[in-house]
Design a protein around this nucleic acid. Structure first.
Lengths: 206, 206
DNA sequence: GTCTATACTGAGATAGAC
DNA sequence: GTCTATCTCAGTATAGAC
């Protein structure tokens, strides 16, 4: 990778983490990086593709950790059912670990979520990993209808991305914003109970 | 309200619902509405304030329905504990009802969420209503520590806003995208179990 | 009070010279 | 690979007509 490309990535990561994607202009980035405006389009094609490169560089290690944990849990379960909470932990805890090692990661992910850019990025790069987790949850909850499972995964994704960003309204109780582990553990408890709920509990009342 | 102001609101609502906020320029809106560019800034001040006016016009009836349901539930409960699921329903079902009567509402709210604009709007106009729901949940779950309750409300908000927009990845299972009632009922079941979960279940394992 | 015409600043993107 | 110059389009601000 050329020096110019590296400088653009590093500067973009820092500025987007600090100010957000929409509020960070390419001109601001290139001024701080000391490179030319056209170099961004030469190396990345567009502002959106630059963001993509920045996010992938941060998120790839997290996804690797997630899959490693999931591999271990599935090996332990053998042909039996994996534990729902353990599967959820393998998905959520690596985020917290990455956040503790690399606080900018949280800021960047929080920004992406706050600006509604996560679905775009997730769809491009994380879909395969998510499908593996859905399969693990399916084995953990064999009685749950497939459609119900998919909706609950949907709910989980919403709660998770909300939790990864410290929305201003909740900032006062966030404690150390970079220490995501406690809140991720709360989330595992919450989601675990939701996933275990009987699918028909709310529908038989009619 | 003047005719010009009305036309701007109607056109902005339609175009933003179709294309999103960022992708809809003021020039596009005023061209379709047949009004002058400066009229937008005269009546609304800025593009963001225009969005605000559009959203409030749609969301005010939903909030009124939510509070009416909550009033009824709290009256029924008297001095006892309200039912968690009923409180959640009073928050979630009016959204589905509005969606069935007025499909553009869902599209607009989905766009707002997808572009990360909900926290901004919620903070401005819905905060008081949310606080009433938090109070109702607190009475419904007297054993739950306050901090845990606040995090679970946080999780709920994430799952709900995710559910209100049909993310492309889930579009295939959305059925009629405007019929949100089934998915909101699934969400009530899921969240109800999460809220009822023991707060210490996930923390004693250490 | 309402609205129009017009100009200003800054954004992302691109063509072509080097 | 890199840079200069330029393009189009965005949101915003203001002066003044009705």
């Amino acid at each position: 990778m050329t020096n110019t490309k590296q400088k653009i990535l590093d500067t973009a990561e820092r500025l987007i983490g600090e100010r957000g994607y929409a509020a960070t202009s390419l001109r601001h980035i290139i001024a701080e990086a000391g490179v030319n405006l056209a170099a961004v389009h030469y190396h990345f094609g567009s502002k959106e593709d630059l963001l993509d490169a920045v996010v992938v560089r941060k998120a790839a290690p997290v996804n690797a950790a997630r899959l490693a944990r999931l591999d271990r849990i599935e090996a332990e379960a053998g042909s039996g059912r994996p534990d729902v909470e353990k599967v959820l932990e393998s998905f959520l805890i690596p985020t917290a670990e990455m956040a503790n090692r690399n606080p900018e990661f949280v800021r960047l992910m929080g920004r992406m979520h706050a600006e509604g850019l996560m679905p775009l990025i997730v769809g491009k790069h994380f879909q395969a990993m998510v499908l593996r987790f859905v399969a693990a949850l399916r084995r953990a909850l064999p009685g749950l209808p497939e459609e119900e499972l998919m909706w609950r995964v949907h709910f989980m994704m919403g709660a998770m991305s909300q939790t990864m960003c410290s929305a201003p309204i909740f900032a006062r109780m966030a404690g150390n914003p970079a220490d995501m582990e406690p809140r991720m553990r709360r989330l595992v408890t919450f989601l675990g109970a939701g996933f275990r709920a009987s699918a028909t509990a709310g529908k038989e009342k009619k």
